[in-house]
Structures are given as C-alpha cells and as structure tokens.
Amino acid sequence: MSPPETDIAVRLSGVHLQFGKTRLRFDCAIGKGQIVAITGASGSGKSTLLNVIAGFETPDAGKVEILGDDVGGRDPAERPVSVIFQEHNLFAHLDVATNIGLGIDPALKLGVKEKAKIASALLRVGLDGFGKRLPPTLSGGERQRVALARALVRRKPILLLDEPFAALDPGLRAGMANLLLDLHRQEGHTILIVTHHPDDVRLLADSVLFLDGGHTLLHEPTAQFLDHSDISAVARFLGR
C-alpha cells in the first residue's frame, strides 16, 4: 500500500529512461521519514533511480515529485535532497571543516554561526577536533563521516546514499549504520540507501524497493521482503 498523499516524500510516476538497449521504468511512492533500501542485481537501475531523484539524470518520460512538488527541470542544487556517494566526493586539498562548509555555502562565506554548525556536525558524527585534518589523512570510515556531516549541515529533508559503506570492512559498516540510525532518529530525514548487502536491509530499512531488469519488482515492508522465498531474484539476493 502507498502512504497517504500528504505523507509522501518522493513519488516517481511512469518514469522511463533508455540506456542503450535497456529501458528503465520506475514507479514508486516513498513515505516521509522512512528509511528505504534500494536493492537488486547489478545493472538493475539502483544508482540511476537515485540520480533521477537528485536531478543528475533526466528521464525521457514521467514525473518526479518531491514533497508534493514536480521537480522536473530543477537543477540538483534546487532540489531538497543531499547525496552521499560511495567515493564521498571530498576535496583532498581542503581541510575537513572547509569540505563540510561547502554544504552550507559553495562560496565558503562562513561566519561565526556557520562555523558553529560545522563544529556541531563534526561532534555529532564523532569527529570532534578533526576540522583541520585533510581527507587523505583520514580512514575510509572517517571520510564517510565527513560526508555525512556535510549532508547534515545542508539541512535537506531527503538524504540519498549510494553504496555509502561499500568500501568499509564489516566492523566499520556496522558502526556507520548505527550512526546513520542515530542521526535519523534525531533528524527524521527520509533516507533512500542503495545497497547490495542483506545485513544493511535488516539493520536499517523500514521498507525495501527491489529492482529487477530495470523496473520496480517489489516495494514492501522489510519483514515481508525478508520472508520471500518464492521469487528467485529476491532469494538470490538473500543468499537462499
């Protein structure tokens, strides 16, 4: 069942894109405040789905609505979304505080109030005192925490994460997942997270959007999704 209209954060209606010989088709409605895992086999369109919502890809047909507004034609910067990629997109020559400050003002016109926001975000992600460090001196998990802090200072209601833990070992993955849950409880973001890992689904997701062959095969509560043994593509994902 779809959430009531007033409770929908993101809706894709009849969205089509053509990539070579592959046609991707997306229809879904994401409830406000949910954490939704987007998963499926490689090439099923997971990252493309995030890129359509963020505005990095323009569909050939269909409508993308965010918080009730049609965002077709809006640039990524004009959409109420923050994106965290697997490679975290930090500038190696800028210190951590400056990288985070870009989330507040790309021109880096940062006053006392803005610098306080940066310090607060670093504290919240467990990196208090790291402001003057350069990204190459950080571990993979620390760099992802910086990317998360930058998303926090942007104060956007929709957070999109594309395989954010893929390069992390299991211990760091669990730590980042728990940090994301803590921040979600505080902020109430709507979060869409692309993942290949069933453990991420079990730990994080309220519901699962499962893509197969470039279209939405399932969108259902996590417990229901994890109970599937009757759909081969889902069973393969779950290791059955």
Rank of each mutant, 00 (worst) to 15 (best):
V52F: 01
A37Y: 11
I104M: 08
H88F: 15
L161W: 10
A223D: 15
E65C: 11
K156W: 08
P170R: 08
K113Y: 08
V208M: 12
L148N: 02
L211R: 02
L209Q: 04
V36H: 13
R124E: 15
D162M: 08
E142C: 10
A54Q: 03
P80A: 00
A92M: 03
F165K: 00
L203A: 12
A167F: 10
H189A: 00
G111L: 04
F165H: 04
I84N: 03
V146M: 10
L67K: 02
V125T: 09
L180Q: 07
V125W: 00
K46M: 07
G14V: 10
K156V: 08
I38M: 08
K115Y: 02
V71R: 01
G20L: 04
G14A: 13
D169L: 09
T48R: 02
S82R: 05
A41G: 14
V234Q: 04
K115M: 12
F210M: 01
L204F: 12
H196L: 06
D162S: 10
H16L: 13
S232R: 13
S2P: 00
D230P: 01
G62P: 04
S44L: 05
A166W: 10
L180I: 15
A41K: 09
A166N: 05
I35C: 07
L159Q: 06
G171Q: 14
L123E: 15
E5N: 04
G40R: 04
I35A: 02
E220C: 11
D128V: 09
A177H: 14
F210S: 01
P106W: 11
A116I: 06
L218F: 13
R185D: 15
Q34Y: 10
G20A: 06
A54S: 11
E87D: 15
L172R: 13
V10Y: 07
V83C: 02
S42C: 02
L148G: 03
R79L: 06
H228T: 10
I231W: 04
P106G: 09
S13A: 14
A149M: 06
S47L: 08
R23V: 12
A167R: 08
R133A: 15
L123R: 14
H196K: 04
N99S: 07
G40P: 11
I191H: 06
V112P: 06
G43N: 09
